[in-house]
Design a protein around this nucleic acid. Sequence first.
DNA 1: GTGGTAACAGATACTTGGGCTCAATAAGGA
DNA 2: TCCTTATTGAGCCCAAGTATCTGTTACCAC
Lengths: 149, 149
Amino acid sequence: MATRKRMSPLAEQILEALEERGYRTTEPRRAVAQVVANQDRHFTAEELRQMLPGLGRATVFRSLKLLVDVGVLCRVLLEDGALHYQMSLRGHHHHLLCVECGISQDLTGCDIEDVLTQTSDRHGFELSGHWLEVYGRCRDCRSKEAVSA
Amino acid sequence: MATRKRMSPLAEQILEALEERGYRTTEPRRAVAQVVANQDRHFTAEELRQMLPGLGRATVFRSLKLLVDVGVLCRVLLEDGALHYQMSLRGHHHHLLCVECGISQDLTGCDIEDVLTQTSDRHGFELSGHWLEVYGRCRDCRSKEAVSA
DNA sequence: GTGGTAACAGATACTTGGGCTCAATAAGGA
DNA sequence: TCCTTATTGAGCCCAAGTATCTGTTACCAC
Ligand SMILES: [Mn+2]
Ligand SMILES: [Mn+2]
Ligand SMILES: [Zn+2]
Ligand SMILES: [Zn+2]
């Protein structure tokens, strides 16, 4: 029996989220959970794969899909069209993405729902969902420029 | 000299848009403009490629990128993540996408700009852009269901 | 604990949607 | 017409997955 490494509480939570849905706790999933829990930024599938060189490629992609499905990860669409993944608060939310440093901040309150409902109504549409990403410059990047200016 | 086919006014417009930016009018670009001008729905890169079997693959992708850059085409993100292209009104706009029949309707007035500015301000972000797709069911699909119900 | 079974992992091959390079060609201004 | 430069297309490469199949493992029942 291999000595089981101690996992971070966040990693444990991720595995619990899977267990709740009936998924088994396996060694590869433990490894994925541990790595994902340590990320403080969004990352690509390829980056995750490089952080887990021991895992099969298919397993990495399967895990990504699984974690998006159970709500542990969310997809983040960058302005250039690249798709990244990020630890997620559960539920519907959007992102403020800094085009300079790349940091992403979650927008939990979805303030645009009302506007969207009105607009949809005007066009005879029955609203069922939406996808929104917001791009700009974060506080840090702005203040850095202010100093150097 | 090959007999030059008469082009639709819309196709001519597309070529003019390219000329204005200093791009040359070539036979492949004429072909692309003609096909693109005839689409009344969004289409994938692959579909465009099949409509232009004589063109090199790279040329098709280059043309797509070019036409997006000059504002002739816009990218449309379907709910399943697939990327489509569509003739575009110039300038910033969004789409109402019917999840049933797939039709896309342009939203020209961007009503969410104000809300987004406020939200960004609250987070210290300087807003520079956003990406929004709205999903639902169109008037036609709704009324069809109402009849059969 | 053991055993059985369904879930899972990994290897491998395939697909989709592009991008890069480079030699050959063609557009369009002089 | 000539020259320069943009453009094309072949062929290769890459990212991001998916499908299939075989061997392994988690977990539950005993
Ligand atoms: Mn998120
Ligand atoms: Mn559009
Ligand atoms: Zn920033
Ligand atoms: Zn519809």
